[in-house]
Structures are given as structure tokens and as C-alpha cells.
Design a protein around this nucleic acid. Structure first.
Lengths: 218, 218
DNA sequence: CGTCAGATTGATATTCATCAAGATCGGTGG
DNA sequence: CCACCGATCTTGATGAATATCAATCTGACG
């Protein structure tokens, strides 16, 4: 039923803006391939990334209910996305309540991830924060069939990573270096290799429950 | 229809735990009176507050779909809450899709608030963060009919506020003092008085769009 | 060969945490 | 009534963490 919905495919280049802040979208956007990030731009010119999407994630499902969107979405890598009109998604939720609950669930899991990010920003050290982020992304990508063998593509600039961590680029650079120095990961040319997953989860105090991967698996 | 749902009222004292982390609730909790906070406890003993609820807010609507809850909820003040079984809420979403969408909307607005909190933690200065928090809470309380005249009850300990801001208690204290010194607010005995709302929103770079208060008003 | 984006490094200033010590205030028992 | 206590707020001193500024380095590309 979901597959029968109308959609249009579109490709974006790295860095391109997929959704502009304060717009009023009439479609929702699903990532087919590539990475995107939600970004909030503050008045002083700084930017905070509030979420990262991987293939299979909806990017702006909340706009289905919220009308005006309060953040922009940018392509972290080359992406292909599918757009489906809101009215068709709404129709699905009415005709197939269990599918509607699945969409609701997607937004709720998004919220759980956001709560974890709040904890990361507020109370985890920068090193633990990066470690946590890598653990999270690896499991999400693995669940989406886009990563295996403790290796993942994560084509993010250190400038952008700084906007995820809420740090300066210089400090971000030193944080990644520390993670490399301790032998837990390598990170080169947009590819992260987790050398010791168990130690990484321990450093990050990572508990994957919030990702609800068991519930999502099919 | 919502009012006809079965529910049980319960009161909590300040500081009491309403929902324990990693539990498996079968009911959802609505705040009737008082304030609560969602808290994530980290392994090193620190705590991060990921959200604050005011009267009219659901506290754990996400547990309706998520099963296991990943955070605890504590009473910031004396509270009275209403618990409604999940199965009754689910039934409502099936029989009255528009009400189901309203519940969905509630979780989506929650997510928008969380994104703002991520930006607050990552990129706003502590002073701007507190200012933003006060603006947000005032508008939410006003919308709930629990505040007016730029005055709001916010019975939170500076220790707890520190867990909201991701700072130490000492620094939190100095941050609040700075906000008082600049003449923007007074904050005594759990009551905040906004002396210059416009200047406060400017300091916080506060844009109320994310609260969707227009859409929620009835 | 020049240019540019991104990564890296060092020096320095600012912010924030930590530690330790009062201060204030309501409650509580003698 | 008074001494004591615990919780909370406040303050000062110190050191660690982080931002900022300014270079340098690297590799891709025309």
C-alpha cells in the first residue's frame, strides 16, 4: 500500500538544501540514498544540527501535522529522495490505521533520538558524545542495510560535525583525534571504522534501547 | 469523547517520581496541575532534563507506541495527574481518526520543542538559554491558562535548573543572577516575573513558531 | 603552478567546573 | 524559646575545558 503511493524522485548534491526553514511543505520527503541533516540557524550566524537522517528515514514527517517547518534540511552527501504529497499520506492514515500508527511511531522514535541528543549535549563529554553518535549511526545504518562489519560511511565535514556537537571546529578536530589516538576508531575520507565496538559503547555509555530497532525490524 | 475516557487521578509530592525509567507503562499520564520534568540519568551519576511538562501536557504519550520508556518523569512541584489506559487511547485513535491525529500532533510538538532545546544546549549562551526557557514556559503556561501578566510559577530548584541547562549548579546560579542584574526578570521563591518581555525575547532570539500555539488553541 | 576547501596545530583568552566555605531559612526536637 | 539541622542559595579561589585567532599543511582540481 505504501509502495503504491505516488511519489517523485529527486537527487541532490552534497551540501544542497532540500527543505528551507520556515517553508510550508505540501509533501513529505523520504531518504532513499545518502545522508541528510536537520539544521537550526540562529540569529548570530551559528548553526545547530538537530538530527541526522539515513536511508529509510522520513525527513519532515512532522510537517504533515505542523504546517510550518522550523528548520532546514541539507544533504550531507549526494542524496536521492522521494517526495509524497501530504494528502496521500493523510489518506493512508485514515484508510489503514495501523500504517498511520507506523508513521506516528516514526515521529516518536525521532523524538526518542532527540532526547538522547539532548543528554549528549548537556551531560556527555565531547569524546563520549562523538562515540555515542558513531554507535547510534552504525546501528541505524546497519538496520537500514547500509553498513556492516563495524564500518560505516559518514561523509560529514568536521565543520558540520562541530554543528552537531555544539563545539568549535578546532575542538571538534581535537576530539576526533583523541578518539583515534585511543585506538577505538579510524575516520578517514568520510569512512568510519569501529575498531572496538564494545569499548566504544562503554566509553559512550551507549544503550540502544531508544532506537527501538527491535520494534522496527521486519 | 476524550472526557468520557476512564481515568484515575493521582497526586504526587514535589520531587516524587511519577514514572520510572525503563518501565513498561500501560497507561498514559496527563498533567492536571503542577509541573513535571523528563530526566535521563547517565552512568556517571549526572542527570539531564530533556523536557518540562505543564498542565494539559501528556507526559509519556510516546510510550503508547514505544513500549519501554527510556527516561524517568519526576514532579517538579506538587502535581495531580490523570492516568488513562493505553488500550482506551488506542481505541480512540481508531474510532476517531481526527482525535488520533491530535494525539499525534501532541507528540510532534513535543519533538519541535526538543529540537529547540538541542539548539539551546548546543549554540546558545547560558544566559540566552535561560531567557529562552523562560519565554517558552511563559507562553506555554499562558496558553494553558496558568500564567498571565508576565508572571509565572516555576518551582524549580537551581540544582534541577542546572540539569536542564547542562551546567554546574554554581554556574547556573551565576547565570540566573546575571539575568536578574540586567533587570530582565526577577526570580524569587519559585515565581518568575518578566520585567521586559520584549528584551528577553531579543536576548534569547526567541521565535515562538515552534510551539504551534496558534494550531493548538481552541 | 595557483587556488581552494578542509584538516591540523600552537598560542592565548574566555568560559565553565570544582572545591570549599558561608549565608539564609524553614523545620524540628529539647 | 532556643539550638540545631538540612536544603538551598551564594560567593571566592583555582584549575580544567573550550573558544578564538592565526598559521600551516594537505590533497583535489583547473
Amino acid at each position: 500500500m505504501l509502495k503504491s503511493l505516488p511519489f517523485r524522485l529527486r537527487e541532490y548534491q552534497r551540501g544542497e538544501e532540500i527543505i528551507t526553514a520556515h517553508s510550508w511543505p505540501q509533501e513529505s520527503c523520504l531518504i532513499v540514498e545518502g545522508f541528510t541533516a536537520r539544521a537550526v540557524d540562529l540569529e548570530d550566524g551559528t548553526r545547530q544540527v538537530t538530527g541526522v537522517q539515513v536511508p529509510g528515514d522520513f525527513v519532515d514527517l512532522d510537517a504533515l501535522l505542523l504546517r510550518q517547518i522550523d528548520h532546514s534540511v541539507v544533504a550531507l552527501s549526494a542524496c536521492t529522495t522521494g517526495f509524497t504529497p501530504h494528502k496521500d499520506l493523510i489518506r493512508v492514515t485514515e484508510q489503514a490505521p495501523h500504517l498511520g500508527r507506523m508513521l506516528w511511531l516514526a515521529t516518536v522514535i525521532d523524538g526518542a533520538i532527540q532526547r538522547t541528543w539532548i543528554a549528549n549535549l548537556g551531560r556527555r563529554s565531547p569524546v563520549a558524545h562523538v562515540a555515542h553518535l558513531v554507535c547510534e549511526l552504525y546501528l541505524r545504518l546497519e538496520a537500514a542495510g547500509c553498513a556492516s562489519g563495524h564500518r560505516l560511511d559518514f561523509p560529514i565535514t568536521q565543520q558540520q560535525l562541530a554543528d552537531v556537537l555544539g563545539l568549535s571546529t578546532v575542538h571538534t578536530n581535537r576530539t576526533v583525534q583523541e578518539l583515534r589516538r585511543t585506538g577505538l576508531i579510524t575516520w578517514m575520507d568520510g569512512t568510519v571504522h569501529i575498531l572496538n565496538f564494545h569499548a566504544l559503547t562503554r566509553l559512550a555509555a551507549f544503550d540502544p534501547t531508544y532506537l527501538s530497532l527491535a520494534a522496527v525490524s521486519r
